[in-house]
């Protein structure tokens, strides 16, 4: 359905997307995950023919984005980040405009708008100016507008930012229902989003793909562990100083104080790391006391942190 090969995009010779290739099949729900500035939005803008790639090939339904942008745009419903809308229009006027541009049959415009309004529960705000709506409603108007022509592909850039938790849940439900029939690509920098909705995740870091797999596979193939331990010692400053010097962990953080002199830490380590040994040596040397130690397999969040997080 969507195939991206060796996609490169530079702004003023600074590459933002570097050699990205991936495919999305029909009916898949794929998440683009990455911190802000990783290039998610740029990739989406290229897919929706808003930007042209510097090099690489993008085909959607077998059509090249250079050859038939209009045909491609017809297939796609694209909700940009921050859901820009014409604030002076009312919800219904805006949906009307979109339906006209989308070439929906004149007789069917009313019914398709009604359907969308029902789907996104916009009944209360149909006559309000969009600029007067809350962020959540604006998002819903945006969603209604991208689905009104029943597109085969939905591309949603950060669809849940600005929504309150209840709305997020409703949105996720809706998305799952939609993904039965449609191909969906959504981007987010929030992991839980992906966990809750997506089948497959593409993790992007600084313009390159660092992981592209189903969530299950990702967790299965990920061998890193994290250790949670607590120490008993007198001087916290000293402990913190010494612990942070320890080698072998790619992430180490202080969690909380269990008691007056008991300090809890968490460390993420690779499977073959010698962090454990180093820690034991240090405790022995400093004459501290190890209260407890737990070893766990890393969860998605840690995986994401490792793959996409800032390098120290």
């Amino acid at each position: 359905m969507i195939s991206v090969k060796n996609l490169v995009k530079s702004y003023n010779n600074v590459p933002v997307v570097k050699d990205v290739s991936f495919e999305v099949n029909k009916g898949e729900l794929v998440g683009l995950l990455g911190p802000n500035g990783a290039g998610k939005t740029t990739i989406m803008r290229i897919l929706t023919c808003f930007l042209n790639p510097t090099s690489g090939e993008v085909n959607i339904n077998g059509m090249n984005i250079f050859d038939s942008p209009i045909e491609i745009k017809k297939l796609i419903g694209y909700l940009p980040e921050h859901t820009p809308q014409y604030g002076d229009m009312t919800t219904i006027e805006y949906l009307n405009f979109i339906s006209e541009v989308r070439g929906i049959d004149k007789n069917k415009i009313k019914s398709s708008i009604d359907e969308m309004i029902k789907l996104t529960s916009l009944e209360d705000v149909v006559s309000k100016k969009i600029s007067e709506l809350s962020k959540g409603y604006q998002k819903r108007v945006g969603l209604a507008s991208v689905m009104i022509h029943d597109p085969e592909i939905l591309i949603l850039d950060e669809p849940t930012t600005g929504l309150d938790p209840n709305q997020v849940i409703t949105f996720r439900k809706m998305l799952r229902r939609l993904s039965e029939k449609k191909t969906v690509i959504l981007s987010t920098h929030v992991l839980s989003e992906i966990e809750a909705t997506c089948e497959r995740v593409i993790i992007i870091k600084k313009g390159t793909i660092v992981a592209n797999d189903t969530l299950q596979n990702l967790v299965n193939n990920f061998t890193d562990e994290f250790i949670e331990f607590s120490l008993k010692a007198d001087n916290f400053t000293e402990i913190d100083k010494e612990i942070s010097k320890l080698k072998g962990a790619w992430k180490l953080e202080f969690m909380k104080k269990d008691a007056k002199d008991i300090f809890r830490y968490k460390a993420l380590i690779s499977k073959d790391s010698d962090f454990d040994k180093n820690l034991k040596d240090l405790i022995k040397e400093k004459n501290w006391k190890l209260i407890d130690e737990k070893r766990n397999k890393a969860n998605l969040e840690e995986i994401f942190l490792k793959l996409a997080g800032e390098e120290e």
Partner: peptide
């Protein structure tokens, strides 16, 4: 693929 790049170059120029 090389072809496509050429195409981009062509269109772009």
């Amino acid at each position: 693929m090389k072809n496509n790049d050429k195409k981009i170059d062509k269109i772009k120029s």
